[in-house]
Amino acid sequence: MTRERWNAGMLALTATLLLAFAIAAGSRDFHNFDAALIGYTFSTLFATFGVAYRYAMWLQRPPTAMYWRRGWTVFFRPGHLLANCRVWLHRVLGEFAANEFIFRRSKRRWLTHMLLMWGCILASAVTFPLVFGWIHFATDADRLDFYRVHVFGIPTFAFPTESLFGFLLFHALVWASFLVIAGCLMALRRRLRDAGAQALQQFAEDWAPLILLFAISVTGLMLTASYTWMKGYGYEFLALLHAVTVIATLIWLPFGKFFHIFQRPAQLGVNFYHEVGGKETQQPCLRCDRPFASQMHVKDLMTVEKQLGFHYELDEQRHYQQVCPACRRALLGLSQGEAWKGISRDV
């Protein structure tokens, strides 16, 4: 076993144990834990191990490790911290909550992603605390037509059971599934009609997540329909079917496209890196002498390339990384021209 795998394994084990401890503590030694949901709990623990393991392996790749280290360093750099916190908040709201960067690429894809993302966030915010026993509802001792919300076993606010608030709250997963189904259908439309997407798509990477999300939402809605309008017809089977779809998705989390949920926040660190780099010394090109990137970025890439086994050094002092991309393109033409000098050409 390599050192990287050992590190990742230990980190994943720690994360899993921490979650297990949080479940035990948050449900008050399993007093508030619903044993019927044990399958969900174990698959979440598995997903936690898988995600933490893959994340740790990913962080140990030379380019990722470099950005990880540099991202935190520039974030906490004296004189920049306050501005960085302000920018961080702005970015979290704009780029993450509102998906502004996808909006700029395509409005239709933005709507698709917003529906899927917020549907999943809403569903997760409801499901996980309930499954872990961190939140539960109990009839209020004083008023029997009131429900009281208990968070980590601590009683909080109460609300009338037969109220609009209660209706909206108890059907939160229904609203989430509406969002996810709409998003899935829009994504499906693109995958069926867009020639570019069809050329590049893969079943495991692009179709499996959509199928899983759609299956979770539809089977969840079937459960609601069963107990609301069909006197619980086929409820046990549907509950099992729904559990299978959720567990399959949780198990798939570390492996496929869903992993971008955990990977993507790295973009925030990259933004800080570029902003701080932009204010510092710039690297002039060896050929045209124009600045083209921050010296920090160029030097970091030289280190990363060396770690990866590349040798772009030109001599003791100069490195090919110090040549700008435009001059690299020109060099390709020039070097080919050199090869043809003095030789007659095909016509």
Binding site: H274, E305, R328, R329
Partner: peptide, 11 residues
């Protein structure tokens, strides 16, 4: 992050 943009030997 632009790593690829800066690292590609052909630009």
């Amino acid at each position: 992050c632009s790593n690829c943009v800066l690292a590609c030997p052909f630009g």
